[in-house]
Design a protein around this nucleic acid. Structure first.
Lengths: 120, 120
DNA sequence: CTTTCATATGAGCATTTGTTCATATGTATT
DNA sequence: AATACATATGAACAAATGCTCATATGAAAG
């Protein structure tokens, strides 16, 4: 995580090597940080957030979600694939229809935490 | 939130009007959902996440953040403006340099919650 | 086997996003 | 006033993103 670009040098930082060490100790690894950002990216779209809120209430098929949100089946299906890839939702096939539901309770916890910040 | 697009109609949903009602009752308002997605969008970039992790350890000037993350002063400054607009960081001017710090503890709580999901 | 219905998916397109580069602003020092 | 240094900012560009449209897949019913 060092020399990707020529970073400027001001007088402050390297007077305090202890701060540098502390940051480097506390900072999660490159990959964890990337994954974390990727996770939040998923929540960073209101269509996906709305889908998740719908699924809080009940397991539901693609068509119903589309109808509830007033959006195309295709648009919803695409986003469900995104949510599926990120393991945020799971699905269950029953004949022609596929029922989606939340993968785990973390999803709710994350959204609640964010909502707390928004509605304050 | 109704008729933006012609949504398909499958047999399931409107057999169960109670589910529809329940969803509509529980679903936050259009604006809250938008703001929530906007908030998560901010966290959905690893540069910004890394900046926030740096600021967990200490208040720091733009130049030092850039140096610690091996990035351009300009890139960091741009992202700090984004974080500032979202009220996630605050700043304090001291002569030529500007020190940035976290705006509140929600920031940490949100990142921790996400990290829990990532590292499981 | 053909049709129908629910869902998935690929290509195309417009929009958004993150970085770079050049330059502007703001503050202190001489 | 002139210079130097820290930061901010606008334009430009490449990459990523979300939707649409057309079409493919998969499962049940005729």
């Amino acid at each position: 995580m060092e020399d990707q670009k020529s970073a400027p040098r001001c007088e402050f930082l390297f007077v305090h090597q202890d701060v540098v060490d502390q940051v480097n100790r506390a900072m999660p690894g490159e990959e964890e940080l990337f994954d974390l950002a990727e996770l939040f990216k998923i929540f960073g779209d209101s269509t996906r957030v709305r889908i998740l809120y719908v699924l809080f209430e009940a397991e539901m098929c693609v068509c119903d979600i589309a109808q509830l949100l007033g959006m195309t089946q295709s648009a919803i299906s695409h986003q469900l694939q995104v949510l599926k890839k990120s393991k945020l939702v799971k699905y269950r096939r029953e004949g022609k229809t596929v029922f989606y539901s939340l993968a785990d309770d973390h999803v709710r916890a994350i959204l609640d935490q964010g909502m707390e910040h928004v509605t304050e």
